[in-house]
Amino acid sequence: MRFRAAPADALLQASLDPFTAVFHRPSGQTHLLVSPAPEMLAALADGPLSLSDLHDALAAAFQLEDAEGLADRMAELVAAGLVTAEPAA
């Protein structure tokens, strides 16, 4: 399974310390995200990644135990419509 962020032009982001407010243009909804969710979106901005690859990309900045630890956060982003899941290539 890979995860793809909503297109960059579909999102408006504002850092509000400690949250990041994200306006999702297609739905008109505002989401308040806390780390590592904004960083996950940023890491997915260049293209879809698996959870394992995402974990590797974020490992330097966060003390993540394993890729599965990101699964709950990813499920929330998918439920919010900010990320879509797709079959691995």
Binding site: A14, L16, D17, P18, A21, F23, G28, L32
Partner: peptide, 29 residues
């Protein structure tokens, strides 16, 4: 009051934040 708390309080205090869509988000942030 920090940015996050202020933002949440003000979205609650606004009668038309949702209706304004992107303009509301830009104005409030």
């Amino acid at each position: 009051v920090g940015g996050s708390e202020g933002f949440v309080r003000l979205t609650t205090a606004s009668t038309n934040y949702t209706g304004l869509g992107e303009a509301g988000f830009r104005t409030l942030t």
